[in-house]
Design a protein around this nucleic acid. Structure first.
Lengths: 176, 176
DNA sequence: ACGGAATATATGAAAATTCATGTTTCTGGC
DNA sequence: GCCAGAAACATGAATTTTCATATATTCCGT
């Protein structure tokens, strides 16, 4: 027993919280993300559609936060989705700087179908962890996120890049 | 009360398991990832270093699995890290196809420092959830990953792209 | 009403990532 | 030993993503 894949005795990675979170997220999402791709959408696009089912007409910046996509990137994705007819962009009459994003009929159709699929998939997932593993996982994660985000604004992270001087952060374009 | 940020009553996204997992992962990692960048490393590079502290000398394919990075991408990242002197690549004498990756002294120094920082950061995180939120979170995630990966090999995901025929998956390069 | 500071998005160029496929090196029969 | 097929990496071209900044509006204080 235990010839392959180490017994991960005192290994760092397999027991590191951030790794476990990332790996769990990946593992749990893999199947559905593949499903999304069969519909001709990339994951970020699916996220946009999903967010719009909840917050149709929200502005780019908001959408970026909801969908966890950086603003500049989201702008480009939205422009593509617009050309493709999944969403429409209209500048806010109240504030000319803002661009509000709406689902088109086609976009809504696709969004609603995928959300339904997502819910079904989620049911299966939670079901597989019926015992207790998945029992309070959602609440746990919610609490986790809340606290972390609250802390993020409260304690905006220090700097301290160098310690011994060996690992000098290279300001983007140094060397090569 | 509840003017901003909705009461997320029956909203989909804020209660969707896959969203919660991704968001929790992001929120939990944000600070440390920023720390990593101040050391002139990108997240994937940090992952490689971390994995090598556990599995120094592993082959590219293994490393890719451990670090959750696609092979082709990892190859490119490793080549860069090699040039930069963080790792060294040597073809396996036992099997010429394989390329084994090792930490250089410099790489090990940086890796060990960051792993120490990561552990300290993890302590803080788990500490902040001392109550019970973070109590069994790790075990929960571990179980989750195990089951999901087991299931992934057992039930290799079906196909079923179209349902009504509306959302035809576009095979990469169809339409502009 | 004016100018400076904020906000909200858009953009461009450089770098990274993806996908499909090419190479090279083993493996297992025959 | 020889060969088809598999395995492990590397590559190239097309796309995406990133980062820094430009642009356009709105806000505010005076």
């Amino acid at each position: 027993m235990s010839t392959k894949d180490d017994d991960q005795q005192a290994l760092f990675v397999p027991n590191y919280l951030l790794y476990l979170l990332a790996a769990a997220s990946e593992a749990a999402s893999a199947r559905f993300h593949a499903h999304v791709r069969t519909h001709g959408l990339r994951v970020p696009e699916w996220r946009v559609l999903a967010c719009l089912t909840d917050w149709d007409g929200s502005m780019v910046t908001e959408l970026a936060r909801y969908a966890m996509i950086e603003q500049s990137r989201l702008t480009k994705i939205i422009i593509q989705m617009d050309k493709r007819g999944l969403v429409s962009r209209r500048s806010d009459p109240e504030d000319g700087r803002r661009v509000r994003v709406f689902l088109t009929d086609e976009g809504r159709t696709m969004a609603e179908r995928l959300v339904a699929d997502a819910k079904a998939n989620e049911r299966d997932l939670l079901n597989a962890f019926r015992d207790n593993t998945g029992k309070e996982i959602k609440q746990t994660l919610r609490t986790m996120i809340e606290r972390l985000e609250a802390e993020a604004v409260a304690r905006p992270a220090p700097e301290e890049p160098s310690r011994t001087g060996a690992g000098k952060a290279r300001s983007k374009k140094t060397e090569t």
